[in-house]
Design a protein around this nucleic acid. Structure first.
Length: 348
DNA sequence: CATTCGTGAAGACGAAT
DNA sequence: ATTCGATTTCACGAATG
């Protein structure tokens, strides 16, 4: 119980940290133009805030370059702001070009901070003259390789971010190493098959984690996974379906029994009750009671019914809470479970 | 009083067309 | 893309201990 709590707490921390980071990434993902515009707005706001009254005499404040001064008493309210513009002056546009030492802003979104080479598509040299055929072929080759390296790098980066995401979600869900590796493999395949365009990295990563968890027999419910993911549930499900279909992953419906251990320990029920719960599930399975029903609901019902058989007290509400299943479903299922086990216990 | 039980309406989902 | 059937959920009130 205690360990579970600590883990989920850590997980929460991980989530928030990560969220911050991804937000920042989103920020830098926007185009340079947008960013410049935003900064400008920000400056304006700051100036507007500065345009308050002097704390000493209540006079108006005026801002010059790097100082904010009271127009009445001369008190320097603030000085040495960071941006005081270029230290040089230019008298015409030509001089400006020569003296300016800055270029396009760098972005953290691209692996090379946007500093990589771009080779233009026009076969012209720096003066606008057409190139000779030999030069043209050379440029053709350079373009091809430049492009190849760049796209490979971008895939690598994509993968790196996704793997970080997978790792994060994996530990937040308390999944073993094996699952994360499987998730990585799934993600790699998705990447190789060009399934990414039009879909968010988080979305695919989340889907990969969910699929991997089920494949390796340590399933987590859709809700649980969605809770640690940044994307919303709708998109998650859609992406998951898509990924499963496109990669033709073979995923059997989750085995309810695999949920039992977790629910049981979270509720702190006895081993005996847990054993009864598993028994109930096995019986039900033999009778084909479980087709079409939600595995989580079935597991929840068993975890509720198990303690009932051993006179242990567990309320439907508690089970419903840890299993994220409605009480109604638990009721319906556990009636079925008990019926199945009474009317004909199939000998093993 | 808390818990459990049963019900019908409503939403969500998968399959079939 | 839409429709259909089954399942789950929600909200409520009654029954049980």
């Amino acid at each position: 119980m205690t360990s579970t709590r600590i883990r989920s707490y850590d997980a929460e921390n991980g989530v928030t940290e990560r969220t911050d980071e991804t937000d920042r990434t989103d920020e830098s993902q926007r185009t340079a133009d947008e960013r410049t515009a935003d900064e400008t707005v920000g400056e304006d706001e700051q100036v507007g805030e500065d345009q308050q009254v002097c704390p000493e005499c209540g006079g108006d404040l005026a801002t010059h370059d790097n100082e904010t001064v009271c127009a009445d008493c001369g008190l320097v309210v603030e000085e040495d702001n960071v941006d005081r513009g270029p230290e040089w002056r230019a008298f015409d546009s030509k001089e400006k070009d020569e003296k300016s030492r800055v270029g396009a802003p760098t972005t953290k979104m691209m692996h090379d901070k946007g500093l990589s080479t771009n080779i233009g598509w026009q076969n012209k040299d720096a003066y606008g003259n057409s190139l000779g055929s030999k030069q043209r072929q050379k440029m053709q080759r350079l373009r091809k390789w430049n492009e190849r390296f760049r796209t490979r790098d971008s895939k690598e980066r994509n993968l790196k971010q996704a793997l970080g995401e997978i790792d994060r979600m994996g530990s937040a869900l308390g999944l073993p190493e094996e699952v994360r590796e499987t998730a990585s493999v799934i993600y790699r395949r998705a990447l190789d098959e060009d399934l990414l365009p039009g879909r968010s990295i988080e979305g695919v990563a989340t889907a990969a984690v969910y699929a991997a968890a089920r494949q390796t027999g340590t399933p987590r419910s859709i809700d649980e996974v969605a809770n640690v993911s940044r994307i919303d549930e709708m998109e998650f499900k859609r992406t998951y379906r898509y990924i499963v279909r496109e990669l033709s992953l073979e995923i059997q419906p989750a085995d309810p029994e695999q949920y039992v251990a977790r629910f049981a320990s979270e509720l702190g029920i006895s081993d005996e009750s847990e054993r009864r719960a598993r028994e109930l599930l096995r019986n039900a399975k033999r009778k084909g009671l479980h087709s079409g029903k939600s595995p989580v609901g079935l597991a929840a019902a068993a975890v509720y019914a198990g303690p009932l058989l051993t006179n242990e007290k567990v309320t439907q509400a508690e089970v419903s809470e840890v299993a994220q299943v409605s009480e109604v479903t638990i009721r319906n299922r556990y009636h079925e479970l008990l019926e199945a086990s009474e009317s004909g216990v199939v000998p093993a």
